[in-house]
Structure formats: C-alpha cells, structure tokens
C-alpha cells in the first residue's frame, strides 16, 4: 500500500510540486490556455511563446495539487525547444504513459526518448485512476494552446 503511494509521490514529484519550475507569466507569450479540473478546483494557465513552429518558451501559473503542479512543471521543462509536432507527440505519449499499460502504448511519431524517461516518474498515477486527470491537466492545456484554443478541461 505505502509502496504505491511512494510510487505516486516520488521525491522528484514532491520536489517539483513544492518548487515548480517556469512558474511565471512570460511577457512575450503569444499563446495561452486555461486548464481546469472542476471537480477538485485545480486551475492553471499555460503560456507559450511559439515562433516559426517552435515552442521557444513555456511557463505556467495557477494552483493545484502536488501531482498536477509537478506534472505542469515537468511539462514546461521537456516541451521547451520542441517543434509543435514534437510537443504534441510528447503529449500523446505521456497520455498513454498515464492511462495505459506499456504494451498498449500507441505510436505517436518520433518522440524525445530522454524526455520520456524523465516523465516516467509520473507513471505511478496509473494505480490511482482518479488522479490521472491531475497528471494530464497541464498537458491538455499546453496542447490546447498549441491548437489555438483558450482552454482545456480534464473532465
């Protein structure tokens, strides 16, 4: 039982949850989308600076639980510098990581393997189905921002 909790709340997640990276509102952001989980009240704004199809900067603000905050923080770290297509491939692959067993993962095109290795720490949420929404909230919002939408809901 406690092993599963440790699996969910790994040190790295607790660290990102307490000290989120890229927790700011960049002046030159040209895309933004709100991510909201109405059930628990988690709310994030994701800010992107997109230039020539590349995510030059990505940051976020808002409040949420340790899982959603850590996931948002880690998302900003791995998405920065990616092309739109690469960022979307990461989103899809990460989504599989949180929701599906390994053998069911789909092929979402070339994906940054090093980034995915980092994100592996989030895979503990699979044992906690109600927390999957927390882990994927910022990612949904990032994806929405790339697609030019202003909000994403994890419901």
């Amino acid at each position: 039982m406690m092993d599963e909790l440790r699996e969910l709340y790994q040190e790295v997640i607790l660290d990102h949850g307490k000290n989120p990276r890229n927790f700011r509102h960049p002046d030159d952001a040209n895309r933004e989308a709100k991510g909201e989980n109405p059930m628990c009240g988690d709310r994030f704004m994701i800010y992107l600076k997109l230039k020539d199809g590349v995510v030059e900067d990505v940051a976020f603000q808002g409040r949420g639980c340790a899982i959603s905050t850590a996931s948002a923080s880690m998302m900003t770290e791995v998405v920065k510098g990616k092309t739109e297509a690469e960022a979307k491939a990461l989103f899809e692959t990460f989504h599989d990581l949180c929701t599906k067993d390994d053998h069911e993962h789909g092929d979402h095109g070339p994906v940054d393997e090093e980034a995915m290795e980092k994100l592996m720490v989030m895979s503990g949420v699979r044992q906690f189905p109600v927390r999957v929404k927390c882990a994927t909230l910022a990612w949904h919002a990032m994806n929405a921002a790339i697609e030019g939408q202003d909000k994403a809901s994890s419901e």
Binding site: M39, C40, G64, C65
Partner: peptide
Amino acid sequence: VHPHDVGTIVDQYGVAVRVGR
C-alpha cells in the same frame, strides 16, 4: 499539502473523506 493529495493519502489508510470545493 493540497487537499487532493490529503484525500489520496488518507484513502490508503482506509479513510474516506471528500476533497474539493
């Protein structure tokens, strides 16, 4: 500690509480 995390952890001890708004 965010209430959602509180809820998940106490649940592992069998304690069912409501979290959220």
